[in-house]
Simulated scan of single mutants.
Amino acid sequence: MVDIPKEIKTWQMVTPYGKNGKTGEILTGKIEKTTIPVPDLKEGEVLVEIAGCGVCHTDLGFFYDSVPTVNKPPLTLGHEISGKVVSGDSKWVGKEVIIPAAMPCWNCALCKTGRGNRCLAQKMPGNSMGIYGGFSSHIPVPSTDLCEVKERGKTPLSCLAVIADAAVTPYQAAKRANLQPGDNVIVIGCTGGVGQYQLQEVKALGAKTVIGIDINSERLQKSLNYGADFIINSMGKSPKEVTGEFKDICRSTGLVSYGWKIFEVSGSKPGQEIGLSLLGFTGKLIIVGFNTAKVEYSISRLMAFDAEIIGTWGSFPGYYPIVMDMALSGRINIDNFVETRPMSSIVETFDEIHHTGSPEKRIVLIPDF
């Protein structure tokens, strides 16, 4: 018999850091352990027992950087979730699943024209699904877009949580770029939580030459084993200097310097400035990472270069099984890029990542209530 809980145990964001808009009071962020109700499940909904939930920089943005959530606190963060269905839609009970980080409505014009990944009515755990998020023992979600996990072998279900965002977002970006076998690719921020999967996936999808750019020498060297053919350390260098090194690689190897597809995954102003500097004739710059800084650029260069700048958001749920198969078949490696910790370490983990930047491995928190 499946044990269906009477309540959900959770780590809830009671207050984010920031300023009270009415009083001007400076607020100190607070996450605390509590319990919340198990709602009555509607038709087409399930209750998932959470195996693991990845810590994403989006969560940190909600907590530390005044990035607003759709549903106001108190609410539980976390949108990178794997688990097992324990109640609800009978077709799903007992199955292991990955929960999409963003679930489209499937009724709006965007959904009906193939852009459901950017559905304006989409539901995201830890943001727009009421008080419910992934840093919990259980979560109620629609069953429509669940990705069933089959034949995962020795890979822990908890580790597959990273597919829900870190690993599938780069696949969506590759599709937006219309990546084709034989393309030349640059990945800026190639050793970060999302960048390391972007690097692997473009190579797995047939990219001919892949250049990885980042600021960590040790991780950059490792990236040569995970898809990078060449690396550039951008630490302390101007965009012009990085572009100069890129052109040196092209000259020394006989590669053309035009038509490159550039994935900016760092989500930093310096990374975006480098991406714009590298964008040349018939090239594409795909913006995968997020930050709030403004970057200056002469937009008329796009006309002169016949080039493109493309934004990409989340992922179409239909890509989840594809990326999961890439991971379980060994075409991309997730085992070496995941670190699991007990969920009771959430406060310390958030603080660590906030102060030290992107960890080498994606941290997945496992419920230990």
Score class of each variant (00 low, 15 high):
Val2Trp: 00
Val2Ile: 12
Val2His: 11
Lys6Tyr: 05
Lys9Val: 01
Met13Leu: 05
Val14Pro: 05
Val14Met: 08
Thr15Trp: 06
Asn20Met: 08
Gly21Tyr: 03
Gly21Asp: 09
Thr23Met: 13
Gly24Ala: 11
Glu25Pro: 03
Ile31Arg: 03
Ile31Ser: 03
Pro37Glu: 04
Leu41Asp: 02
Val46Ser: 01
Leu47Gly: 02
Gly54His: 00
Phe62Ser: 12
Phe63Thr: 14
Asp65Asn: 15
Pro68Ala: 08
Pro68Thr: 09
Thr69Asp: 12
Val70Leu: 15
Lys72Pro: 09
Leu77Ile: 14
Lys84His: 14
Val86Leu: 04
Ser90Thr: 13
Gly94Met: 06
Gly94His: 08
Glu96Ala: 11
Glu96Gly: 11
Pro100Arg: 01
Ala102Met: 13
Pro104His: 14
Asn107Gln: 10
Thr113Ala: 10
Gly114His: 08
Arg115Ala: 09
Leu120Thr: 09
Lys123Gln: 06
Gly126Ser: 11
Gly126Met: 10
Met129Pro: 01
Gly130His: 09
Gly133His: 05
His138Gly: 06
His138Asn: 06
Ile139Ala: 03
Pro140Glu: 02
Val141Glu: 04
Thr144Lys: 04
Leu146Met: 06
Lys150Gly: 03
Arg152Tyr: 11
Gly153Val: 10
Lys154Tyr: 10
Thr155Asp: 10
Pro156Lys: 05
Ser158Pro: 11
Ala161Arg: 09
Ala166Leu: 13
Thr169Pro: 01
Gln172Ile: 00
Gln172His: 13
Lys175Pro: 02
Asn178His: 03
Gln180Lys: 07
Asn184Tyr: 00
Val185Gln: 06
Val187Ser: 01
Gly189Met: 11
Gly193Ile: 15
Gln196Trp: 13
Gln198Leu: 08
Gln198Ala: 15
Glu201Val: 10
Val202Gly: 00
Gly206Lys: 15
Ile211Trp: 07
Asp214Lys: 02
Asp214Gln: 02
Asn216Cys: 11
Lys222Tyr: 07
Ser223Thr: 03
Ser234Ile: 13
Met235Ser: 12
Ser238Lys: 15
Gly244Glu: 14
Glu245His: 09
Lys247Gly: 05
Asp248Val: 02
Ile249Ser: 03
Arg251Gly: 14
Gly254Trp: 02
Gly254Asn: 08
Gly254Tyr: 05
Tyr258Gly: 00
Trp260Ile: 09
Trp260His: 10
Lys261Tyr: 07
Gly267Arg: 07
Gly275Cys: 12
Leu276His: 09
Leu279Ala: 12
Lys284Thr: 02
Val288Asn: 04
Val288Thr: 08
Phe290Ser: 06
Asn291Cys: 00
Lys294Ile: 15
Glu296Lys: 13
Tyr297Asp: 05
Ser298His: 13
Arg301Val: 05
Leu302Asn: 10
Asp306His: 10
Ala307Phe: 04
Glu308Cys: 12
Ile310Gly: 04
Pro317Glu: 02
Pro317His: 07
Met324Ile: 01
Ile332Ser: 01
Asn333Met: 00
Thr340Ile: 12
Ser345Leu: 07
Glu352Asp: 15
Ile353Tyr: 11
His355Met: 01
Thr356Tyr: 02
Gly357Met: 09
Ser358Asn: 14
Pro359Val: 07
Val364Phe: 10
Pro367Trp: 03
Phe369Val: 05
